[in-house]
């Protein structure tokens, strides 16, 4: 077909118009199922990282700047906290994860929700029973040196994925801080002014001075 300015403009206009119409239609059809799928994912992750609970943690969630905290109760008693948080320190961008804590701060389980790490290397952080998760589960971050062994900490890094592993540790640390901050706040309400996150900052700096 011969090209003239008129028919070129007209054809492209019609094609883009139809394309945007189709995309709009597909978007409106899939919008709801996508939301349902994402909610199902959060629910599944909660069930994975928390001990057995009988409430709906999504109802009483607390949102802070960098984390969402879900509280799980069983028969009215708090059995754990799940903290959803993220870090930008990954090898190729953001890593989002959900960390489940028992009320005393011990890590119950961890699940990575989203990441774009190198497939076959950093992506191993999502596999069950990987080195990182094994280093964390059943431990309390307060008793751990929160860095990978290469940096003098207690955490086993994934083979050939030190940067991804550092990011993982960073995200767990953020989750722990967020939980402490939340618990600290409820302490402020009832007792005095000191928060527990300040303690960790100091401790961390001391650790840095030793090196």
């Amino acid at each position: 077909m011969e090209s003239s300015l008129k028919n070129m403009v007209l054809t492209l206009f019609i094609i883009t118009l139809v394309a945007s119409g189709v995309l709009g239609l597909v978007y409106s059809v899939t919008e709801e199922p996508i939301q349902v799928a994402q909610q199902a994912k959060t629910t599944a992750a909660l069930a994975e990282v928390l001990p057995a609970f009988d409430n709906n943690p999504a109802e009483g969630k607390m949102e802070t700047e960098e984390a969402v905290i879900y509280t799980a109760t069983n028969g009215g008693e708090v059995v754990g906290y799940a903290v959803e948080t993220s870090t930008q320190k990954g090898f190729s961008g953001e890593i989002r994860m959900m960390v489940g804590f028992k009320p005393d701060g011990e890590i119950y389980n961890i699940q990575v929700l989203q990441h774009s790490e190198t497939p076959g290397l950093g992506s191993k952080m999502t596999e069950p029973g990987n080195k990182l998760i094994v280093s964390f589960v059943g431990k309390n971050p307060a008793d751990l040196k929160m860095s990978v062994k290469k940096d003098g900490g207690d955490i086993d890094a994934l083979t050939a994925s030190t940067i991804s592993s550092r990011a993982y540790v960073d995200a767990v640390q953020r989750a722990y801080n967020a939980m402490q901050q939340m618990l600290g706040k409820s302490v402020i309400d009832s007792v005095s002014g000191a928060t527990s996150t300040g303690d960790w900052e100091e401790e961390n700096q001391k650790g840095g001075n030793h090196e």
Partner: peptide, 8 residues
């Protein structure tokens, strides 16, 4: 294909 001008 028959409705698309060659240049675009």
């Amino acid at each position: 294909k028959n409705y698309i001008p060659g240049k675009v």
